[in-house]
């Protein structure tokens, strides 16, 4: 059980961490969904062509980070509205992956390169037998471990490094940052590029984990990650906890699918409904707390 929840949580966490950096920099990127989609496609296409999952991950990370940088450079350089350009990325990613899938693989459906196995799961011999901890620590793909290491690294980066502090300063008060000689645009661009990197990993984990690319494989995870940032109170630890909440919810819905006779197409609505409920609940809670202060 815990093992499945960790699996579900990984892409949420990676995407939400990427979004968190941009939110802290004061330039929230709503293009996470598109970045994940492109990341998943590039990772699978390259891994399928080279036979190496590592090459797929690397290509995806490089490509999507570069794309995110270009997106940020354009948006900041032209003072465009980052919400609207972010929507452009999401729509473009959907169109581009469908088109590239038709060109490269001759199908708009599921792409499953021959000879590409789903990514291996690492089991840790002694620990895997333990209850709870076994499921938590053992039997995942490399992405789960990567997401934890990156969460920790990001927390340290944002709190303890010069660049991290400057990213946060850009988000807190851009004018004050400018007066202190920190160019907010520069640090926002770094944050946006980082979000591309994180989302590339989230996408690569989805497609390589399954050994196949399914159209719209991101299926709203980028949007749910945005809510996770908000729900996590804009802190790294909070985002980890919020991602866990969404993972548990999705796990329960998967269980429900097996036991109660709910039609599969109707279940597609469930993640959005849960996210909406959590979003509204948190807004009401926050408002209530605000009144007491």
């Amino acid at each position: 059980m815990i093992s499945s929840i960790v699996d579900i949580m990984t892409p949420f966490l990676l995407a939400a961490l990427g979004g968190l950096v941009t939110e802290l920099a004061g330039s929230l990127v709503i293009a996470l969904e598109g970045f994940i989609l492109v990341g998943a496609f590039v990772a699978l296409a390259v891994a399928g062509a080279t036979g190496s999952a590592l090459a797929g991950i690397a290509a995806s990370a490089v490509f999507v980070t570069a794309a995110a940088w270009a997106f940020g450079r354009f948006t900041i350089g032209t003072k465009a509205n980052i919400f609207i350009t972010g929507l452009a990325v999401n729509l473009f990613a959907a169109g581009l992956t469908a088109w590239a899938s038709a060109v490269l693989f001759g199908t708009k459906g599921v792409v499953k390169p021959a000879g590409l196995e789903p990514l291996a799961r690492l089991s840790i011999p002694a620990i895997e037998r333990l209850p709870v901890i076994g499921g938590l620590l053992s039997g995942h793909t490399v992405f789960a471990y990567l997401s934890w290491i990156l969460a920790l690294a990001l927390a340290v980066f944002l709190k303890r490094t010069r660049t991290g502090l400057r990213i946060r300063a850009s988000g807190m008060d851009a004018q004050a940052a400018t007066v202190r000689g920190v160019d907010p645009d520069r640090y926002r661009l770094i944050a946006i590029s980082l979000s591309g990197f994180f989302c590339a990993l989230a996408g690569a984990g989805l497609s390589l984990g399954a050994g196949a690319y399914i159209p719209n494989i991101s299926s709203g995870r980028g949007w749910i990650a945005l809510v996770a940032i908000y729900l996590g109170g804009r802190t790294t630890g909070g985002v980890v906890a919020a991602s866990a909440v969404f993972a548990v919810a999705e796990y329960l819905s998967n269980i429900a699918q097996g036991t109660v006779a709910i039609p599969g197409s109707l279940l597609l609505a469930f993640p959005y409904l849960v996210t909406f409920a959590v979003f509204v609940g948190y807004a009401i809670y926050k408002k209530g707390r605000g009144k007491l202060d």
Binding site: F74, T75, A80, I84, T85, L87, A88, V89, L91, F92
Partner: peptide
């Protein structure tokens, strides 16, 4: 749609 969104608010 994407092309319109990308350029419409750019200055």
């Amino acid at each position: 749609q994407a092309a319109v969104f990308l350029f419409i608010t750019a200055r």
